[in-house]
Design a protein around this nucleic acid. Structure first.
Lengths: 170, 170
DNA sequence: ACCACCATGTAACAGGTTACATGATTAA
DNA sequence: TTAATCATGTAACCTGTTACATGGTGGT
């Protein structure tokens, strides 16, 4: 959120929209979570807020990052990632595929391939219109998504082929 | 956990070990979480437990899956995955790389490539010794990990090259 | 008429982590 | 003697989701 606030003064609602169309592919806060977070940022001196009275719309709070907020952002980004397990519900379900109707397993893999293909096209569309000089790091995070989607497609095709091969003689 | 219990009667401790060397790459429960879960499985009729008294070791509880447990497992596996956002803390940090020392970003990418290479070798080693007929689905989930690791390596190399190219003229 | 957008919150619950608590056995 | 293994639990806390709660504006 501090990172998104560096794009300028915004309301909680604005931040949700911005999150959706930027970091939304790899992280999105729940509405309730965000509205709970913002006042604590102010309390901690990482952001300031001001109320904007509106007549045709509900009043809103606008938040702006402070110098302390920028320092906190940098410090947060400098924290090492740690080696938490990469949760993968798909792989988990696949692991226990033996206990399921083979057709359902197949369908699940096919659905994942399809979703990855759609996602890949979406990412490539964004890539075309992106200023890669100016938004180098967002561009890089997009490339990570591209490689990830390709991996899912590659895996899916291999898996379906193997199911035909090995699964046939059962 | 019900899935792991299909491998046979086990204690909580056994299950933790089994999880680590099987589904551990994409999911592991915390110890406290598991020990809290097991009695509820019994309460819900999905597992039965018996106490084994030991002299040189602490007494233990052994858990065995019931027919109702097997049904619940199948039903759980048949639940669709839903389209939750693929959380990716690495990509999130990368997105905001602008706010960091470029050297630290580079180092983080390099570390991820290295970790993926180590992981890939580990997976390929497991692959060699695996009976792919018997453990077809575990093998497939391993292949998913393989493609995923390769994607991380591919991305890392592209990203480092791009940082050299575009990052040089700043 | 209906839907999307603007706008902010509270409450209950689920899932997961970390720390606290204990203690014998066995291999290096 | 040091560390890993065997063995189970509780409590506090953090993160995140879902449901509840409200209501005007503007476009098709």
């Amino acid at each position: 959120m501090l990172g998104l606030l560096t794009f300028g003064e915004q309301s909680g609602y604005d931040l949700l929209g911005l999150a959706k169309q930027s970091v939304g592919f790899f992280w999105t806060p729940a509405r309730s979570q965000l509205y709970a977070l913002l006042p604590t940022l102010v309390e901690r001196g990482l952001a300031r807020s001001r109320t904007v009275r509106q007549t045709r719309r509900p009043d809103k709070q606008l938040y702006r990052i402070t110098p302390a907020g920028k320092r906190a952002l940098r410090e947060g980004l400098d924290q090492p990632l740690g080696s938490a397990v990469n949760r993968n519900p798909f792989a988990l379900k696949l692991f226990f595929g033996e206990h399921r109707d083979p057709e359902k397993v197949r369908a699940e893999i096919e659905a994942r391939v399809h979703a990855a293909q759609v996602h890949l096209r979406e990412l490539e569309k964004i890539e075309q219109d992106l200023d890669k000089q100016r938004y180098l790091f967002p561009y890089l995070s997009l490339l990570d998504g591209v490689e990830d989607a390709k991996a899912k497609i590659r895996f899916g095709k291999r898996a379906l082929a193997l199911l035909d091969e090995l699964g046939a003689g059962r």
